[in-house]
Amino acid sequence: MHEYAFFLGCIAPNRYPGCEASAIKTSEKVGIKLLPLKGASCCPAPGAFGSIDLNVWYAMAARNVVLAEEMKKDIALICNGCYKSIYEVNHILKHNDELRDGVNEVLAEIDMQFKGSIDVWHLAELYYDEKICGLKKIRDSVTTPLNGVKIAAHYGCHLMKPQKERHFGDTENPMWFEELIEALGAEPVQYRNKMQCCGAGGGVRGYDIVHALDITNEKMINVREAGADAITEVCPFCQLQFDRGQIEIKEKFGDVYNIPVLHYNELLGLAQGMSPQDLALDLHAIDCTPFLKKVL
């Protein structure tokens, strides 16, 4: 078993608890154990905090990292926004003495110190990583293959970009997420401009919802054009933007899509035999039933 401190963030545990439940259960079936990271907070939101004062963003994210350092465990997480804060701040502070000293001065006030002793991973990259899990283990864990459905992969922004500060390679047309979908028996579809942002980030969802939804709407048009039965992503904030966003798009622009939006962990959960109730899919704004009827 590979053990990780499970950093939850906000939207997964507090809006889509199925993402949290499925992460814990699905990972265990492929040799990954997620341990609670007690006392963790918001990552903090890179858009809101980073925009106001980057120094607070560094210090707050560092506090979350230090909690895992104290457990002597690497962090695993399931949200691109959290990845931006936790992965990036960990990386920056490891390599920038001046910023690290500044952060440690503040952390000393609460008897903490950033040491730079752990690494941060997105659960999706651990699933793909042959050394930890890999596609074969994912495939072998599937008991209910999701045959007969087309799924559009939304990679999101902050997992892979900026490319030079990450390790995922190509950010124009990556294919690893499609491979993860294929491993569940579903058919990944290609669609126009698939790397485009969901529209929610940078505080824009809160600042100008119509602007954010207009970006989301463009994405939805492209997803529908490809005939997708569902969208999958690895970020609960993108999930919220596509899922609740479709209701808001209907209200604001009159466009209707009704395309269910599922986190990859939720899809994997279904493929491993978890029931829709085990995943709290009824909390999704867009009804997942038509999709479920096709696969179950």
Partner: peptide, 12 residues
């Protein structure tokens, strides 16, 4: 100034 979604497409 507040309409950037921080998607980092420009950066890449």
């Amino acid at each position: 100034l507040w309409l950037c979604t921080t998607c980092y497409s420009c950066t890449d």
